[in-house]
């Protein structure tokens, strides 16, 4: 359904998306997972024809995103990170306005507005101005707005950003339902590992504009666990930096992260790993409170692959579009 080939986007000298290729199958929920500033949003903007690739190409439903952008636009729906709603218009007026841009007839549009509002339990707020809505309500509106044209492909850019846990769950369930019932192909971005793990069929982990891993969630986890790998969460009463340091020098230990004043997380491999770790704690006279054998999470996958933790790197990396943008000289066709 979506085919991306060597897609690259540069803002001046900064490479936001670096020679990316992947395919999304019809009816799949595909996740782009990575920290802020990794280039996820830029990929979505290019695929939804809002930004022009510097080089490379992509097709959505067999239409080229630069040559047949009109056809692409009639196939897709976009839920952007910013809410695409007019605060001074009512829920119905907002949906009516955007629906009319898709040339929907009056009858079809009126029916669909009612159905969609019903679907997200906003029917009773139909004639209230969107500006008076809570963030969760607005986000639900924002999602159904993108569904007015029954898109075959839905792009979701951080759909649960800034929502409380309950609203997040509702939105995620809604996305899954949409995929199940309408067979909508969904491409979503998130920086939340849990979210990607919960709803995505396949996940592409993105870091610094590159895809560093692409597989199903369970395969990604298997790739770092397996017989050879041990992940332990150890509680030590008298935890010292000296102890952590000595543990890091062990050959079998890959990484040690301190969670708080008593817990550490150890990622190791090799058959002798367990013994070696316990021995090193004993020699430093550490008192072990608890040992837990951990199943790897996507977070560990990310850590393992990229060698650094998921964190917000926006302050140093993301090129603010508004600050460059719009000057034609920056663009290369």
């Amino acid at each position: 359904m979506i085919e991306v080939k060597n897609l690259t986007k540069k803002f001046g000298d900064f490479v936001a998306v670096d020679n990316i290729s992947f395919k999304v199958k019809k009816g799949e929920i595909f996740g782009l997972l990575g920290p802020n500033g990794a280039g996820k949003s830029t990929i979505i903007r290019m695929l939804s024809t809002l930004a022009r690739p510097t080089s490379g190409t992509a097709t959505v439903g067999n239409y080229d995103i630069t040559k047949n952008d009109g056809e692409v636009r009639s196939l897709i729906g976009l839920v952007s990170e910013k809410m695409i709603l007019y605060d001074l218009l009512t829920a119905k007026e907002n949906l009516w306005f955007f629906g009319k841009l898709f040339n929907l007839s009056k009858e079809v549009l009126l029916r669909r507005i009612d159905e969609l509002l019903d679907l997200v339990q906003l029917s009773e707020w139909k004639n209230s101005q969107v500006g008076t809505f809570s963030t969760g309500m607005r986000q639900r509106m924002n999602v159904i707005r993108a569904l007015l044209n029954m898109p075959e492909v839905l792009f979701l850019d951080e759909p649960t950003l800034g929502l409380d846990p309950q609203s997040s769950v509702e939105i995620r369930e809604f996305i899954r339902k949409l995929n199940r019932e309408n067979k909508t192909t969904i491409l979503l971005t998130t920086h939340m590992m849990v979210e990607a793990d919960m709803i995505c069929d396949r996940i592409a982990i993105i870091d610094c504009g590159k895809i560093v891993a692409l597989d199903t969630s369970s395969n990604l986890k298997k790739s770092i666990s397996g017989v050879d790998t041990t992940m332990l969460k150890i509680g030590i009463k008298n935890l010292t930096q000296d102890l952590i340091k000595s543990m890091r020098t062990l050959k079998c230990v890959e990484s040690v992260t301190q969670e708080n004043s008593t817990y550490i997380k150890v990622h190791a491999h090799g058959e002798e790993a367990f013994d070696a770790i316990i021995d090193s704690i004993r020699t430093k006279k550490g008192k072990i409170n608890s040992i837990e054998n951990l199943q790897p999470t996507l977070e560990d996958v990310f850590l393992h692959i990229t060698g650094h933790e998921v964190r917000d790197k926006a302050d140093q990396k993301i090129p603010l579009e508004r600050h460059r943008g719009f000057m034609p000289k920056n663009r290369v066709r």
């Binding site: 809002l50 976009l78 910013k82 955007f98 841009l101 898709f102």
Partner: peptide
């Protein structure tokens, strides 16, 4: 919100 109009056909 401009994006909303821009992605409409």
């Amino acid at each position: 919100t401009l994006d909303g109009m821009m992605v409409a056909p």
